[in-house]
Design a protein around this nucleic acid. Structure first.
Lengths: 340, 340
DNA sequence: AATTTTCTTGCACGCGCGTGCAAACCGGTG
DNA sequence: CACCGGTTTGCACGCGCGTGCAAGAAAATT
């Protein structure tokens, strides 16, 4: 039916059709769509007009088959519980798209499927794999770097010393230095640190930094508790379990949390389990500045990572062919709200 | 350097290499990787072993160029604020991957770039475009259906009567019928409905259904308020503005919300702005059963959509070549918690 | 044992486009 | 007018694999 309908052959418009319409060769059409190609301005204009007329757009699959670039990146994520991931997804996809990259979303949550997922991504000839997950084991990293066709491995929003790996992250040490200074400046003296799980390959140095600096500044070792995943409910449970029933004098005056998810769980526990006030009885700080942190009932003092700038840096790295491992770190800023 | 290193030629292993290693032709290799292909079991085993040995995996780009399938779908999303989106992303990517599909994540948040993003996806030869956003204008839908190479357009978790469109969603009418019955059964008599924005193309019928049923059952028209986007902070603001300062007798006894994001904002407002209790003073219900709804301090009574089953249905639709518009709707279940 | 029938395998061709090279073109100069 | 440097265009080849068809091998039938 539609095959004989040649009035507008929208079935599949190829460069040949455009070439015929514009009265040039197919290769000239190809050049018209390529920036910095050797083609005269008027020919390009003529070709682009013809392309517009017949409704042509280059086929990126075919293009990446023929060239060595795919302009496609894989985004590997294994934690869908933290709203901060949504923020990163939004920023990354937006910035990448704006610069001509498409994004393959790969869920590596299911551990047994992780390698398979990674290989699957490599089967799509991605120019890079970007990890924004938490639990990338060394096995995963090795699988990734070993995977053929994955040219670059980029760890986003985490730092890593692993070789063959580029990491783009906030400077956790400097961030915690600022946060520690802030907490001290507000007069808090009995802190407790609420930490997330320890991961090996890509690490947040927040806990170590806080403990070290606090010790250094006050001579006192701060109390530290931890949860085994960045989950608000777990934080709620651990905070309740640790603090509820303590004598008032034994309670911390500030709870410094490794990220906002933990902080929000802790705030809920303090209020709803212990009937205490934030920040009057116990102050709380977070990290990430997720959208929920600004909610009127949290008003969380936290640290904002410059995700957009980090994403833009990512694009620069993608554009550079050379694979020198330029790990780069950024500075964010404390966002002071009512919680501390 | 690495080119002369032919011990394991990991640069690019193609089917030819496997063919040589296995002592068969390249096309036999191709068949070994294709389910239901005409090939003897022993040959297949031999080929797969050889492939394993040389580290070969089929190149999906080349495969989709040669065939008419890409096993790639585009996921279009324009709302990154609702945690429910994270749930859907996780489920969809997991189920799709399990069934051999890869996912292209397309951020259509930036309105002016929406069409461009859609076209860009079509340039990747996606087998289908899946919309899980909110604001798909008719213009967007038309652009999508008009876009070449986008064979199917599927609206997920929203219903739509638009032609050339397949929608997979929960039966909103039936869901609200259950919710209304529950609210009535609990003895609430002064409801207020908190609605999200009205969108045209793909609509939730929750507000209409609730109003209609309540009227029908009690003869009373329930009060309705609305926010212009599904945002907790907005819901907090509107709830505060509407309810704060009302005489106790004029307050609703239950706030039925179009989704959990609105409900959680409302709960926060009720507690922190009005110093009232949930559910004793005002009960609240939501919709979606986002992870946060189970948090101890929300304990939100809500309605859970069977996202995984819906995703599996999606896969079936993708596998069927014929494009009959089988809009399908699912039944979820009320999740009763403490908030109502 | 000869001959069908059914499986299995090999192969030409094409999917749509990019790259490198050579031919063609253009305008300007001695 | 011939010559030359620079620019623009055309073209063979290949990217890695799937599909349809025909030849070959194996199994089943008489």
């Amino acid at each position: 039916m539609t095959e004989t309908d040649s009035s507008h052959a929208d079935q599949t418009v190829t460069a040949d059709d455009v070439a015929e319409a514009a009265g040039v060769s197919r290769w000239t059409v190809s050049r018209a769509f390529k920036k910095d190609a050797s083609i005269s301005p008027k020919t390009r204009a003529k070709v682009l007009a013809a392309a517009e007329a017949v409704g042509y757009l280059p086929d990126l699959q075919a293009a990446s088959l023929a060239s060595e670039r795919s302009n496609l990146v894989a985004l590997l994520i294994d934690d869908f519980n933290n709203p901060h991931k949504l923020v990163m997804l939004e920023r990354l996809t937006r910035v990448l798209r704006k610069n001509g990259w498409d994004t393959l979303l790969v869920n590596t949550l299911d551990g047994t499927e992780t390698n398979h997922a990674l290989l699957s991504a490599s089967q799509r000839r991605v120019d890079a794999a970007i990890l924004i997950g938490l639990q990338f084991s060394d096995a995963l990293l090795n699988a990734a770097t070993g995977a053929r066709r994955v040219k670059k491995l980029i760890i986003f929003a985490r730092s890593s010393e692993n070789a063959n790996t580029i990491s783009i992250s906030v400077d956790d040490r400097e961030a915690m230095r600022e946060m520690t200074a802030y907490v001290l400046s507000r007069g808090y003296r009995k802190p407790m640190f609420l930490a997330g799980p320890d991961t090996h390959s890509a690490h947040l140095r927040r806990k170590e930094t806080f403990v070290e600096l606090w010790q250094q500044e006050t001579g006192v070792q701060p109390e530290v508790i931890g949860v085994e995943s960045y989950d608000s409910n777990l934080a709620y449970g651990i905070a309740t379990q640790t603090l509820k029933g303590r004598a008032r004098a034994d309670l911390p005056d500030v709870l410094v949390c490794e990220n906002d998810a933990l902080a929000m769980g802790a705030i809920d526990a303090i209020r709803h389990e212990m009937n205490l006030r934030v920040p009057e009885d116990i102050a709380v700080t977070g990290f990430d500045d997720v959208p929920q942190a600004a909610r009127p009932n949290y008003q969380l003092t936290t640290y904002r990572q410059p995700i957009t700038r980090m994403a833009e840096r990512l694009v620069e790295i993608l554009q550079n062919a050379e694979n020198r491992d330029d790990n780069c770190s950024f500075l964010g800023e404390i966002v002071v709200r009512a919680s501390a």
